[in-house]
């Protein structure tokens, strides 16, 4: 089979089966691209994981792009990524259509009423783990709170003032990046 078609099809399947998001999708991707097709080695797979930790973008998209590039250059990257998002696109549009049609049912409304507070809680959890990461450079609750990163605290405080002053999100992200760079040069 044409390699581009095969890439598209395989990443379609990965996109469909990687339920749970984030790290939960890792075993699925590994099973296909490392164990089954040997498109990349385990070391390269771990590298993708590391890159994903420090660059924008979900790990699934990153893996699709990386594997695609390696197998068939830039067209491969594009095809694999498109394959990966195809199931999402179909399912999400289908769900949106169903919600439009049946969204007024009390069962659906009740379910969503239960989900909204859950999302608020999950956003707070993400916020907290990002505070650990920014100030203490650790992904879980810091073992030693006195061991903080002064650069992180400075940028975080300035950024929080900027949020309160209604600075646009993009200016804020860009500005904080520059602030990190400047502090890194100074300290």
């Amino acid at each position: 089979m044409n390699i581009l078609l095969l890439l598209y099809w395989e990443f379609c399947k990965i996109g469909l089966f990687c339920v749970g998001g984030g790290y939960a999708s890792l075993p699925w991707i590994q099973a296909a691209v490392v164990d089954n097709y040997h498109w990349i080695t385990m070391t390269e797979f771990i590298d993708i994981f590391t890159i994903s930790q420090m660059t924008p973008g979900p790990i699934g998209i990153n893996a699709a792009t990386f594997v695609g590039t390696k197998i068939a250059g830039t067209p491969g990257a594009v095809v694999a990524t498109l394959g990966f998002v195809t199931p999402s696109l179909i399912l999400c549009l289908l769900i949106t259509y169903l919600m439009k049609k049946y969204g007024e049912l009390s069962a659906i409304k009740g379910t969503l009423n239960g989900l909204r507070p859950a999302v608020v809680a999950l956003i707070c959890t993400a916020g907290l783990s990002f505070i650990w990461l920014s100030v203490w450079n650790t992904e879980s609750v810091p073992t030693n709170f006195a061991d903080f990163d002064i650069k992180g605290i400075i940028i975080l405080l300035i950024a929080m003032i900027a949020v309160k002053k209604k600075v646009s999100v993009i200016t804020l992200l860009f500005g904080s990046g520059i602030a990190g760079l400047v502090l890194g040069l100074l300290m």
């Binding site: 890159i51 420090m54 608020v120 990461l133 992180g152 950024a159 760079l181």
Partner: peptide, 26 residues
Amino acid sequence: FAHNYYVQMLLKGMQCGATAVIIDVG
């Protein structure tokens, strides 16, 4: 990319900025 100090500081800064927004929205 992975071992460059300045790249890491840039990413670190952006991470702090994102943290501020998440705290605010949360």
